[in-house]
């Protein structure tokens, strides 16, 4: 049986992991390679690296990070953040990443999804959607540029379009829930999971093991991504998996 995936997300700036991740047994807790290996040992199913470097130099450094991680890691990993073109995708995938995640550039130019899928195959192309509830429309709208710009796109419609353009996976972040640690947004996760036939990774709001159970069962997500809950040791991947196993959810 295909298992539900747990995916820690690491924010990388200028080649260093930021957000003060706490692993006591690491010499250098800002080293992406060391952290990636640690999560691999703990049972992470995949990793996501989000490049939040603002300047061009940071992006060049990211390619080096990807190359080093690829040499050391024995599980798949995705790289996202600021990918604008097919050329950017080529650089990251050739450096050894398994997938790239597209966000703002896919909204402004959906053909980039198609170009990436044609060149590398859909399995390499993740479309990340930042969604926020709009009470006046009673639906979820897509935001871009790190959540700073609202668009008129409906999140469910956009997910369907992204699939049609050739996305292999949707990474859905609920901006309403992100950082709140009060659970994933089950409504939008379920809506998108039912609307597309590609895997959906839920993100934003994980606070405890129960939240993962609910997003898999009620939200029908295929995978769940979290950052701070794992980084700050609120719980561990092993603990979440053991909880899920007890509840009858298939995990590795």
């Amino acid at each position: 049986m295909l298992t539900k995936r747990l995916i820690p997300c690491l924010d990388v700036k200028n080649g260093r992991v930021v957000k003060g991740i706490q692993f006591h047994n690491l010499r250098d807790s800002g080293d992406p390679v060391e952290l990636a290996k640690q999560y691999d040992r703990e049972g992470a199913d995949e990793l996501v690296f989000l490049d939040i470097s603002a300047a061009h130099e940071g992006r060049t450094t990211m390619i080096e990070v990807v190359r080093s991680v690829a040499e050391q890691l024995s599980i798949p990993f995705t790289v996202g953040g600021g990918i604008q073109s097919l050329e950017d995708m080529k650089q990251i995938l050739r450096a050894g990443a398994d997938k790239v995640s597209l966000n703002s550039s896919a909204v402004s130019n959906p053909e980039i999804i198609e170009a990436g899928a044609r060149y590398f195959g859909s399995q390499c192309i993740v479309v990340a959607i930042d969604a926020k509830y709009d009470p006046s429309a009673n639906s979820f709208k897509v935001y871009t540029h790190g959540g700073s710009r609202k668009t008129n796109l409906d999140a469910v419609e956009w997910a369907k379009q992204a699939e049609a353009y050739g996305a292999g996976e949707i990474l859905l972040t609920s901006m309403d829930c992100d950082g709140e640690k009060s659970g994933f947004n089950l409504t939008i996760t379920k809506q998108i999971s039912q609307a597309v036939s590609i895997p959906v990774i839920a993100s934003g709001g994980a606070g405890c093991a129960e939240d993962f159970y609910r997003v898999f069962e009620e939200g029908q997500a295929d995978a769940a991504l979290a950052a701070s809950i794992f980084h700050y040791k609120d719980t561990s991947i092993e603990q979440v998996k053991s909880f899920l196993k007890d509840k009858g959810v298939a995990v590795r």
């Binding site: 049986m1 295909l2 995936r5 292999g168 590609i198 895997p199 295929d222 995978a223």
Partner: peptide
């Protein structure tokens, strides 16, 4: 049937 691609960890 199931989602395509078959993506992830299977037993």
């Amino acid at each position: 049937g199931y989602k395509v691609p078959h993506m992830g960890w299977n037993e």
